[in-house]
Amino acid sequence: MREFITGNIRRHIEPTSEEMDILLSLAVSRTVKRKEQLLKEGDIARHQFFVLSGCLRTYTIDTGGKEHVLMFAPEDWWCSGDLHSFLSGLQSSNTLEALEPSTVLQISKDKLELLYQQAPKFERFFRILFQNAFVFHQNRINANLSQPAEGRYDLFRKYYPGLESRIPQKYIASYIGITPEFFSQMKANMIRKKS
């Protein structure tokens, strides 16, 4: 576990062994069952999660009761379920749920503040993570407004390589904003075009 999360963190900062000790002393490892919710709509997002194994999904439910998948968090991803709620302390409009049995490392907002004090490099790390999350969601909004379904599907495969074989198609369809039936038809058409 230590090597895995250290590899993730070293993409943005170079923590010392002591700084990693501080992070790992403040974070808690948690095993999550399939369909277990780590954040529910209406709650306040109080944790950042690093996915050690498994896959999480963040979704919202519209006024008609339809689910809309906003993002996935497979291994080696960080997420909160609702960054706005995490940063503002306001209620979440999203739900964060395990799609597979998962193991996560979670750190509370209070412990994160303590981490910033004891190992200031991590403030830069999480600032970069939050900036990257903003850019990711901005690009997703732009794609949803300007790309056809095939283009959005290609972006899904780019952002989440290998995930398609692990999760139900209905969640991918929801993520790219189409029905599962249209998704099946679109994939069949794409295969026909290639042959």
Rank of each mutant, 00 (worst) to 15 (best):
P74T: 10
H137A: 13
T60R: 02
N142T: 08
L163S: 03
F136A: 12
F182W: 06
P180M: 11
R2F: 13
F134R: 02
E19Q: 15
L114N: 13
R11G: 15
R46W: 05
Q37V: 07
S146G: 11
K40S: 04
R34V: 10
G65L: 09
R34A: 15
L129P: 00
S29N: 08
L114G: 03
E97Q: 15
L105V: 02
G162K: 02
T58D: 00
C79S: 05
T31F: 03
V135W: 05
I172G: 12
I178H: 02
F86K: 01
S25I: 07
F156V: 01
I44M: 07
R127Q: 15
D21H: 10
A45E: 02
P168W: 14
F136T: 12
R10W: 01
I176V: 04
Q169Y: 09
L115C: 11
S53G: 09
L39F: 03
N142I: 09
H68C: 15
K194A: 09
I107Y: 03
F130M: 05
C79P: 01
L163M: 07
G177P: 08
L163A: 05
S85Q: 03
Q91I: 05
R2M: 11
K40P: 01
S195W: 08
N144Q: 09
R10C: 09
D43S: 12
F134W: 14
A173I: 03
R124M: 09
I44K: 08
A98C: 10
S108R: 00
S146D: 02
F86Q: 02
H12G: 08
M71W: 13
P74E: 06
I176H: 05
N139E: 13
L99M: 06
Y116A: 04
N94H: 14
N189H: 14
F72H: 01
L105N: 00
D82S: 10
D62Q: 10
L26E: 04
F125S: 03
R57C: 04
I13A: 02
E181A: 14
H84M: 13
E113S: 10
A98F: 07
F125A: 06
A45G: 05
F182E: 14
S174F: 02
Y175L: 09
P161H: 10
K170G: 01
L70K: 00
E164K: 09
S29A: 14
T6D: 05
V135G: 03
L145D: 13
S25K: 14
K187F: 06
T16N: 09
L114Y: 04
L155E: 08
I22G: 10
